[in-house]
Simulated assay, not measured.
Amino acid sequence: MKTGEVRSILVVVTRQIGDVLLTTPLIAAAHERWPAARIDVLAFAGTGGMLHGNPAVSGVIEVPARLGWAGGWRLLKRLFRRYDLGLVAQPSDRAHLLALVAARVRSGLVPEEGGSNWWKKALLRHAVPIAGDRGEVHVVAEKMELLAPWVDPLPAPRVVPPAGGDLPADVQARLGPRPVVVHAPSMWAYKQWPLAQYRELVAGLLAAGHQVVLTGSGSARDQECVAALRDLGTAPALLDVSGRLDFTQVRTLLSRAALYIGPDTSVSHLAASVGVPVLAVFGPTNPQRWAPWPAQAQGDTRFARVVPIQQVGNVTLFQGSQDCVPCGRAGCDDHLHSRSECLESIPAQRVLQEALRRL
């Protein structure tokens, strides 16, 4: 396929919000290579907000995680052979099948081991093998490799945050010039740093005279986590904006912040992309694969597999010191509601000391 033949591109990234954000370096590189091409992104419903205002994205096609036969048929008819190039940024069977219907030439991620690999590789112009969560290559770098046949050398990846949105008037009025943003909730228990540690951290920041802004969604789990911290202070010293901001407004908040502290979650990836100093508390997850990608990363950006505290660019990452870290499992019992001893062992004072040093 010649450069001039690429007039339309479909990027398939049917996973979670953070995965969509971490696909933006691939999208930016494709736009730089084919500036006149239309680039659409196929994503799950509710995840496209991370692409708001992205200058390289022409359109976002959001689909339910469960399509059903009727919904699937309508989507296939909508996509059929509309695109010259399909970039499959997720290794799932469905992502590959959708790209097969939509684009005449495809480049895709394929697990190193998998029963469906044979047909995926047979249908791709370019296959990028991925090792999974115990591998050593960051997911951002893996996705960039999808362009290897057409872009040489590949540019340094840069995660593109969504455009900023206006904050609610009352939040704007109470927000200090350099707040510390603390995001306590994790979607799953096995990624949750204990709330007792968050309480000690927030109390220490407030005692040192720093304004703390609590973020989170309006979900029951997020609100339960934030509720455990609300009694530590009053506004404006402790400002709770959880459940009130969309991702464009969170991006604006982060651009005003002196520091961000949070777990292995999409908001931590967003904070890193904005450029604010980030303190990320990691548990079983492998940072070589999933650490927040630093803003303005240059050259070979690599995190160590396990170090109690490490810094790459504007990202400082904390881990437990157990021999099993990172296990790549869903906690000690390997299920979503499991505890993670490695997270429980990270003391609040270690994170607080680093936060105060930064501030």
Rank of each mutant, 00 (worst) to 15 (best):
S8R: 14
S8V: 11
I9C: 07
V13Q: 13
R15L: 00
L21M: 04
L22R: 03
T23G: 11
L26T: 08
A30W: 10
F44G: 06
T47H: 08
T47S: 05
G48H: 09
M50Q: 00
A56H: 04
G59W: 05
V63E: 00
R66E: 13
G71W: 07
L79K: 03
R81G: 14
G86H: 06
D93K: 05
H96E: 04
V101G: 04
V101C: 06
L109P: 15
W118I: 01
W119C: 06
K121T: 10
A122I: 04
L123Q: 11
R125W: 12
I130R: 03
A131C: 11
D133R: 15
D133M: 07
G135C: 07
V140C: 07
M144P: 10
V151L: 13
P155M: 03
V159E: 01
A163K: 07
P168D: 13
P168T: 10
A169Y: 01
L175M: 02
G176K: 08
G176W: 11
R178S: 08
H183D: 14
A184M: 09
W193L: 01
R199S: 08
V202W: 04
Q211P: 11
Q223T: 06
L239H: 09
D240I: 00
R256D: 05
A257G: 10
L259P: 11
P263E: 06
S266N: 02
A272S: 04
G275W: 02
L279F: 12
T285M: 13
P294R: 13
Q298H: 09
F303M: 01
R305T: 01
V306A: 15
L317I: 00
S321C: 15
Q322M: 11
C324T: 02
H335V: 05
S340K: 07
S340Q: 10
E341I: 12
A355K: 03
